[in-house]
Each structure stands twice: as structure tokens, then as C-alpha cells.
Simulated assay, not measured.
Amino acid sequence: MRKFSLGSAIMYTLISLYAAICLLPMLLVLMISITDEDAILRNGYSFFPDNFSLYAYKLIFTGGSQVMQSYGISIFVTVVGTLLAVTVTAMAGYTLANKHVKFRNWMALYFFITMIFSAGIVPWYLMNRMLGLTDNILALIIPSLLFSPFNLFLVRNFMNGVPDSLRESATIDGANDITIAFRIYLPLCTPVLATIALFYGLDYWNNWWNAIMLIDSKSLYPLQFMLLQLQSEISMLNEMTMLAGSSDVTLPAESVKMATAIVTIGPIVFLYPYLQKYFVKGLVIGSVKG
């Protein structure tokens, strides 16, 4: 049995208070999303809504098919894109961590330069058009597939901590680099791979820029872009109603914003607890080694 002391009681109390403070904004967002728009305009934001209403969620899921289809598009893009991005980053990190690869430091410098300088939007757009990455599902995956240099160096630094004797022993036994990477290095690097998987997953899930620039078909809209359009349409209709001098109809602009936040953060909130045990270890060790 662990001895319970006054210091432990104070520590647990402070942690509980901090957790409650972190949860309060999310609770407020949830309460606003289920509050009638007239009550929000009349009383402002409140943890205790006067008029309970699910109209914002009904408006988001009107018809059902478009939102659910966009949900499916976002989930597919996030899962496939994250798996591919993690694989590419892991292979590049393994190459830069392999001391037998010539000019690996020069290659690392080449990748580092991309963290500082960017060609801009126009070359990025023209390149995607030349590659045929417009108005198809690949346009939501490939442009974001190129690994982040930060994630690359995180993986490389973590792999530098793997003893070279493991690679040498596997080489003596006849293993090639593919076998060494997938059978030895990647299983040992689970913490850092889970960390960058969370980073890539967040980027793909929250990405609406690719849809704006490269997607024309409504059937390919990801969830973030579709909900962004919905909010813009509601704001425009409210402005038109005000200009017309009509106050009979009030569209749920504020409640829809909060309902959108609740709808979009769901998958990430459920994913993080499974990766949390790897996250801190992979981030800390990968950032200080090498």
C-alpha cells in the first residue's frame, strides 16, 4: 500500500482543480451548442441554458448524407494519409540515422532548409495541377503527405539512440535494410512513431486548405470545409435578414459554431488517450538525443 501524505493530497487536489479548469471551456461550448439562439443573444454565454434546443445539430445534420459523407471522407483521408506519412517519415529518419549512408548530414541539411524557406502558394498550386491532384481524393492526401522536417528530425534523433550493435548483428545474420527497419527499428521506435502519428492525424483531420484550393466536387468535401461553408452561409443569411429589416427569423449562428466544434473534435478526443502513453516519451527523447 502506498503511503498517503499531506503532500500527495495537495498534489492530487491541484491536479483535479487544473483538470476541472481545462474541462470548463469544453463544457461551456457544449452548453452553448444546445442553447436556443434567442437565449444566447439575450443572455450571452451561460453554463445553464434557459431554452434547451438541438436545432443547431439538426441544421448540421440536415439531410444526413452530406455531413456523414464528409465525415467518411475526413476519416478516410486522415487514416490513409497518416499511415503513409508516418511510413515515409520513418523510412527517411532511418536513412538519416544510418551511419553507413554517405552524405546523410548533407541530406539532413537539405531537409532543414525547407523548415526555414518556402516557395509559396503559387508554385505549390501549379505543381499539384501538373501532377493531376485536383478534384480527386488524392488531392486531399498527397499534398500533405510530404513529411514535416520537424517530425523527421524527431524520428532521426530517436533512432540515433538505438544501439548500432543491433544493426550489425542483423547484418551479420543476412538481414537487409528493409528487414532491419521493419523488424528491429520501427518496433523499438513505437513512442516516437505514435507521437508523429498524432501530429499528422491532427493536420489531416483539421485540413480544409487543400479542399479550398484543389476540390470542386461537393461530394469530396471533407468535414472541416463543409462545416466552414455552412457557417459562412448562416452568417450571410443573418446579414441579409438584418439588412432586410426582418427580425422574425434568427438563424443559430453562435450555437452552430459551438456545435461544429463539438462535432469536429470528437475523433481526436477519443484517439488521444490511446497515444498519450507514447506521446511524452517520444517527444522528449526524440528532441534531446542526437
Rank of each mutant, 00 (worst) to 15 (best):
R156H: 07
L84R: 02
Y200A: 10
G63M: 09
I75R: 04
R2H: 07
A261I: 14
I116Y: 09
K102H: 06
S219A: 10
A20I: 13
N136H: 00
S219R: 09
Y55R: 06
V77Q: 01
H100N: 13
G63Q: 10
G81F: 12
A9V: 11
R129P: 09
L214H: 07
Y125Q: 08
P163I: 00
A253K: 04
P273A: 14
M26S: 07
A90K: 01
L24R: 07
L202S: 02
L28F: 04
V77M: 01
N98Y: 08
W106P: 00
T62F: 00
P273W: 15
L186S: 12
L23N: 07
L154W: 03
P252D: 07
A92Q: 11
M159F: 15
T78N: 02
L271Y: 14
Y278T: 11
I178N: 13
E254K: 15
N206R: 09
V29K: 11
F279Q: 14
D248T: 13
Y272F: 14
N210L: 12
Y278Q: 09
P163Y: 06
K281D: 11
P273R: 13
A85S: 12
D248M: 15
M130Q: 14
L237P: 00
L138T: 01
S8E: 12
C189G: 09
A19I: 12
T62N: 12
G93Y: 05
F153A: 08
L23W: 10
K289E: 02
V162F: 15
I180G: 02
Q229C: 02
M107I: 13
C22E: 07
S219L: 04
K58C: 02
G132A: 11
I268V: 06
V86Y: 04
K99C: 03
L251F: 13
L186W: 13
